[in-house]
Design a protein around this nucleic acid. Sequence first.
RNA 1: GGCGAAGUAGCUCAGCUGGUUAGAGCGGUGGAAUCAUAAUCCAUAGGUCGGGGGUUCAAGUCCCUCCUUCGCUACCA
Length: 525
Amino acid sequence: MSDPFYITTAIAYPNGKPHIGHAYEAVATDVIARFHRLMGRDVRFVTGTDEHGLKMAQTARDAGRDTLEFADEMSGYFRDMCSKLNISYDVFMRTSDARHHAASIALWQAMEASGDLYLDRYEGWYSVRDEAYYGEEELTEGEGGVKLSPQGTPVEWTAEESWFFRLSKYQDPLLALYRDRPEFIRPESRRNEVLRFVEGGLKDLSVSRTSFDWGVRVPGSPGHVMYVWVDALTTYLSGLGYPEKDSDYSRFWPANIHIIGKDIVRFHAVYWPAFLMSAGLPLPGQVFGHGFLLARGGEKMSKSLGNVVDPIALADQFGVDPLRYFFLREVSFGQDGSYSPQAIVNRCNAELANSFGNLAQRTLSQIFKNCDAYLPAVHGHNADDAALFADIDRIIGETMPTAFGELALSQVIEAWMSGVFACNAYIDAQAPWTLKKTDINRMETVLATLYISIAQLAVAISPVIPASADLLLDQMGIPPEYRNLAGIRGHWYSPLAESGFRLEQPSGLFPRLELPTTDDQGDDI
RNA sequence: GGCGAAGUAGCUCAGCUGGUUAGAGCGGUGGAAUCAUAAUCCAUAGGUCGGGGGUUCAAGUCCCUCCUUCGCUACCA
């Protein structure tokens, strides 16, 4: 068996429909997963929905719905989004699943066995309106000395029985982890934040709630449900079958990487490894906090601002692959990025339609018309051909994998584009349309050289635009077993040509996009 | 308030441990070509690298200060 690779998205909280941020994260994670498959690794990719907690129960209640039935519907929207966006997950884990409850209980009991859980009272300034506790220093003084939350709502001193996790005990182990494995938290800016946070001291964490019951019951402690983060994080284990011994868990845990949003870095980089250490389980290799996609004005997308963009509608409008390409190309992975219809149209037309799509089209068309649709024979390569091959080979064999290894996803595509540019420069310099009249053998060699290069570029970019890449490779007759990095760099052209394969009339891969005419409607966000 | 990040060509950004004429893509301009989705290729356009001060033979790259933007500052996820 090949090298295992386990990657996850964050587990989405479905108290609303998926927004562009969910789509972005799913796509980015999918691209990484697909790339590792391309490299021949055995990949597990887990995503899912985190359905417990007060907000879900409330949202359902407000809608007059049964909580689980509501969760079923909402979770469904996330699965629909994944299927729409061609997200190649292996497991979609729901926290309401019985298997997941079993896993959460197993993790809880493992932490309990380490003596890291204890029952105590949770006391603090509680805002009924916000349903949240606040620290003394966060409060402000209102009229008549009334204490107010940062949201301006009244708070009162409240005490509640709660299970606590000895997070304080893990301060030093965590700092040692960050020190010994600097790549554990990325990007660097997030790592620094976490470092400072942990260096500042850790208090024990309240890990159960008694104010609602929509969650995983704490074993042997009636009235308590687990703090949502305890069970949400457990999804990464339950998605592999934990605690079952004979499951993917034994092969794929620990995860190579958790892809999450920058807003939940602490839960993944502090609480999660602490829980795992407590339970005696191996720690994941890396937690990567990506940035947010901002609307053109630079505002964060949020429901309260009413500027939520439906990713399904975007995919319908521009196409799934162009949207995926845009997400990864335009945004420097790890940093915030911005989105606008204009930017999508510009980027996709320039790079997918004009540079790459047109390259394939002009090459295949010439073969179709000038070679009777048969793949042309190679009559000896010259130095120009060798230079192009060397260029492409370096790009797909070194530059792109290296950038992928660093999760510099936009640089991966940038490198790929440089290969596309090289092909366009080559075709113009060689001018096979002129060779047609002067040197037919050379024309054939040039077209064959391009054919090989285009197929290699198509395979290399297939994690980003899987459907389009397959469509092209289908047109080109590339057998499935060659659609991986090793295969496409190998010897397949001559056998394919000698097999008598013929092209169909080539058809464009990426139609040029146009801006929606009702343009300004979309800006009204 | 505390800690941190960032401010580089019209736009989006690269610029590692300081060292020849500060880079890329897009946009703009001028050519070439016509196989192709009016797509492509070539050339080019000068930005006092946020302001000021300092260290150094030498600073976008180190130090100080000021301005601006942003992030984190524990139990809503």
